[in-house]
């Protein structure tokens, strides 16, 4: 197991380094002279040269990259050109909102997706399966943000069941916090639930046809034990992988969801930064997201090896 995790750790590190290079070069590819952006009103060549020197723009790309990485490691992601606030501070305020939203959405996706997936597999050929499949197809085909708009329109504004927008920190008022996040989490979670459902269903169908299920039945195990213990545990490997792969969708979805529900998260900050051409913020956001993605994927692999003992020994399988 240790060698497998070390191998995965090494792969993640390589990917992370590549990601920093992509972000670094991406920022260099931005149009316009960064010195000009900093100079503001100043147009005098001498002071521009001074700014260039101060920003390290005269160094070789390699040196610049080294400084960029060292800064990032120290938590220095630069300063917003619009607000003058350090990017790390901005991310620090937005990130908790996004993380809470994502975790709640993931919870919705897993609870909804796994249960409907199991039901569809176990009740194969019955109306319950048909219904679960139809639900999954709809979930896959509905644009989440539109679902959000409709939910706001009818559930929040129309019926007044939920607040239409805004956010209350959990520490301030947990109930109000959750009340504000129920709709966004449901909206963000349903699309992923559909994907989880389909994967759970096919993994369960495969597990249920396996020889070890026959063994479990031959032992006298109850249907609940056969399905819940033997089949589901084996299917979880697939489900965990799928959830890991949906992180990109989750992150993208969080951005849109925050925008619709007016949540002061990471996503809103990102979109604002694009329209304000606040490059240091964009760079920081992209870098942090990529790093988070790589980290979470590594953690998914760790979870994976805890669920399936074969991976612990097999080593560098992909």
């Amino acid at each position: 197991m240790r060698s497998y995790l070390l191998h995965r750790l090494w792969q993640s590190a390589v990917t992370l380094v590549l990601a920093t290079i992509v972000v670094f070069l991406g920022v260099r590819a931005l149009p316009g002279d960064p010195a000009l952006a900093f100079a503001g009103e100043e147009r005098d060549p001498a002071s521009l040269a001074a700014i260039r020197e101060r920003l390290g723009l005269n160094d070789s790309l390699v040196v610049q990259y080294g400084k960029f990485v060292l800064g990032a490691l120290r938590g220095d992601l630069g300063t917003s050109t619009r607000t003058g606030i350090p990017v790390s501070t901005m991310i620090g305020t937005g990130l908790p909102v996004t993380i809470e939203l994502s975790l709640l959405a993931l919870l919705v996706a897993i609870v909804l997706g796994v249960t409907t997936g199991v039901v569809a597999a176990v009740r194969r050929g019955r109306p319950a399966e048909w219904f679960a499949n139809a639900l999954a197809l709809l979930g896959l085909s509905v644009p989440n943000f539109w679902l959000g708009l409709i939910a706001i329109l009818y559930l929040a504004v129309g019926l007044g069941l939920f607040p239409a927008s805004g956010f209350v920190p959990f520490g301030e008022d947990p109930v109000a916090n959750l009340h504000h996040l129920v709709l966004p989490a449901l909206v963000l979670g349903t699309g992923i639930a559909a994907i989880v459902m389909r994967q759970t269903r096919s993994a369960m169908l495969e597990s249920l046809g396996a020889d070890y299920i026959r063994t479990a039945r031959a032992k006298g195990a109850s249907p609940r034990a056969v399905i819940g213990r033997h089949a589901l545990r084996n299917s979880l490997v697939v489900v965990v992988t799928v959830v890991g792969l949906q992180l990109g969708i989750l992150i993208s979805g969080a951005v849109v969801t925050e925008r619709i529900f007016g949540l002061p998260g990471f996503g809103k900050m990102t979109i604002d930064a694009v329209f304000q051409r606040d490059y240091p913020v964009i760079q920081g956001v992209v870098l942090v997201t990529a790093a988070a993605y790589i980290l979470i994927n590594f953690l998914v692999d760790v979870a994976y090896s805890l669920i399936d003992p074969r991976i612990r020994v097999a080593g560098g399988q992909s």
């Binding site: 020889d211 070890y212 031959a218 032992k219 545990r233 084996n234 669920i307 399936d308 003992p309 074969r310």
Partner: peptide, 29 residues
């Protein structure tokens, strides 16, 4: 099943559940 009529199947690789220890599979019965 398992108590009075027990089974041994052909494929010992696939007939045992890969994610549980053999001990837990015997104690389950």
């Amino acid at each position: 099943r398992g108590a009075e009529v027990a089974y041994v199947f052909q494929e010992p690789m696939t007939s045992l559940n890969p994610v549980f220890t053999v001990g837990s599979q015997i104690t389950e019965t």
